[in-house]
Nucleic acid binder design. Structure first.
Lengths: 211, 211
DNA sequence: CAAAATCTCTACCGACAAGTAAAGTTGGGT
DNA sequence: ACCCAACTTTACTTGTCGGTAGAGATTTTG
């Protein structure tokens, strides 16, 4: 039994009091649903409060404003993603399998039920430094993780290795989103296989190319 | 005394009448600057009018609303991009050079002075069907062009070829943007070389993989 | 040179959403 | 059972921005 049950569409539990942590978690969850569905701008604080079965001031007792609420989600999922990618890479000895694991981690993140990736990869809030920083942090976290693994193997200097890493992460991210949009598509495993093979074969061209 | 000579402080041409087409073009240019700099939401119609040295009602005599103005730019640059990619592919006989030309076209587009790519690749307007359609059209236009070239060469079925094409386009697009952000970086040509090599070597792994 | 048509500007309206103050309500401690 | 404290809610304020009406200027035409 989930004591912090979500109020999806109706609000049967309006008025019930929750411990502070549970309430905060519930608000975050509701906010995520609304932000994912509508984007930052179209998401109204009223919508979020309604979704949580709560009124607006309650929201403002837990978060100082809309931006902070958004940032809390963004940072959580950003670091989450970076962790998953790092784990995937570090828990595999072989470099080829590392690439596959990294691509797999990206796909898994995109395939999550809560669609958290839309916050990180499709944020519609621009010009806000804190947001750009959070997104940049997630992005460069993944890139650095891949770049480290690639540098040694491909025998490239840091700058070029990083560009390759950017390519691999971008490739995974974009294809993962496309794969998700294409409903009746091939299985996730096969998509990951295709992409990691593409990446690996591509990388294989480089040591001899440079040295 | 009552000279309205204040005109020349910011916008020297304030008050000057222009033929309809010229005015429209100027407005589009101003709008692009503002949309690129601030994104859709933060761009105010007043800003655009000011930037064009014109007042707001003039804007509304040429475009029925903010959305239509935005769409006009989006569609123009979207089709422009697709054309460039198609040209790049079709004007090269060799498949390897086709890949390089396609990647080069993406980089060129991103490297344009007016930064039009930010409208197509970083649009912060979501939920508006017309916008999603325009972006989708640009995206799929590029993808299809690449997919056609890839299908024959790699001996893959349509679905997998398309996924690969998505990967190549995504790879180019993401790395191009990253390359642009990294000021003191390697030259565009070398970046294009790196990426198209990565793509080509990666693709080379596929005919034998499947057949 | 004068008058009208046309273009442009200043000033305004209304909608919408973030954030808040004060009233109302519920539950826990004694 | 009662009262206090914390939690919730209703209802409001405020600021911003898309869009518009009517006044003012300028070029063209008779």
């Amino acid at each position: 039994m989930t004591e912090t049950a979500q109020q999806s569409t109706d609000q049967p539990n309006r008025g019930v009091r929750l411990p502070r942590d549970a309430r905060r978690a519930q608000l975050l969850s509701a906010a995520q649903d609304v932000f994912v569905a509508n984007g930052y701008h179209a998401a109204a604080m009223d919508d979020i409060a309604d979704r949580a079965g709560v009124s607006k001031p309650v929201l403002y007792q837990h978060f100082p404003g809309k931006l902070e609420l958004y940032l809390a989600l963004l940072e959580t999922h950003g670091t989450e993603l970076v962790s998953r990618v790092r784990e995937a890479i570090e828990s595999n000895p072989d470099n080829k399998q590392r690439v596959r694991a990294a691509v797999g981690a990206l796909y898994e993140f995109v395939d999550r039920e809560d669609q958290a990736f839309r916050l990180v990869f499709e944020s519609d809030l621009r010009g806000e430094p804190a947001v750009e920083r959070a997104v940049e942090q997630a992005s460069s976290g993944c890139i650095d993780a891949v770049a480290e693994a690639v540098t040694a193997d491909a025998g490239l200097d840091h700058e070029r290795a990083r560009l390759l890493a950017v390519g691999l992460v971008g490739l995974s991210q974009v294809t993962a989103r496309d794969w998700l949009d294409t409903e009746n598509s091939i299985s996730r495993d096969e998509a990951v296989n295709l992409m990691s093979t593409l990446a690996w074969k591509g990388l294989a061209g480089f040591p001899m190319q440079q040295g």
